[in-house]
Amino acid sequence: MQPEQKSGITAPRKGWIQSVKDGFDGFSGRTGVREGSPWTGLGAVVEREFNDNLTSTRMRMLQALVFVTGFAAAYSAIGQIKDVVGEDPFVFLKIFTVSKEPLPSFLAFLGFLIPIVAITLGFDAVNGEFNRRTMSRILAQPIYRDALLVGKFLAGLATLAVFLVALWLFMMGLGILLLGLAPAGEEILRSVLFLIAAIAYGGVWLAIAILFSIVFRSTATSALASLSLWLLFAVFWPMIASMIAGVISPIDPFDPRTQIAAFDTQQSIERLSPNTLFAETAMALLNPSTRTFGLVMMSQLQGMVRGAPLPLGQSLLLIWPQLASLIAGLVLLFTLAYIAFQRQEVRA
């Protein structure tokens, strides 16, 4: 007896990911359309991974570390701020940005630690499943690979969000307690936008970590690769950027325009780093008097009220490219991870 064949009467639903995939399949020689929703089982994956993230020992250790450093940074910042209360309309936001020797500011800590948290969440996302030998069993369940990867990414992002929101609430509470002031409406708005930027920044590093967890079969290798990249961007990137800029646009000491060109080149290269993008975004949001990240000509300073804060809309306009680039980077890296995962053989 011949099993009855479906003759393509039922039109399969095509999601955007499917459309993207079809595009890639086109040049890789694959044909045909998959039937059924790629999101089958997504909820279950997200729930399990989220649970796993929140209860794992390594996440608890990191959370403790970040809260302790956050507390230390904020506490020392508040000691500094108390002297200038009343002089600044955005005194509350200073908890994030002001630093007192020897501690760096809370913002600097975050720029440093968010990637570590994200890498911790993602470095063994895929190769860990292979090493535990759960991958082929899970993929043999009636779900698509899409659900597994997207579920892992969303669960990681949700964990990051929960973690950062808790940290944000902690800092706000600390500020209210120690400063004796309630944050103003715009301060809350700015810090919430900062929170969103921080999640996007974490998402970029999560996507990097997951990509490496697909590319490398050993969890140690993928962790080291992610950490090397993090070290590159956190420590060495400014040096590398100035070196490359020196080669691309050398400075002629008699032509001031070459100096401007060199600075522009260096800044463009620096902005390839998610760390720079995040630092600039955070600076404009938390320090409303930030007007530009580039050079300022004397002529532009005419009529400027020094130190006066910009309205929120103007600050947003200033960092819009940075924020958009962070999110675009996140999507791009995740897409790369997605393609790599789809093409991976189940066999080790």
């Binding site: 045909g32 089958t40 082929s136 069993r137 009636p142 698509y144």
Partner: peptide
């Protein structure tokens, strides 16, 4: 199994 994997995997169990 290539184009209707969910239908296949719903009916087939695998012990690797």
């Amino acid at each position: 199994p290539l184009h209707q994997p969910l239908e296949v995997k719903r009916r087939v169990g695998y012990l690797p």
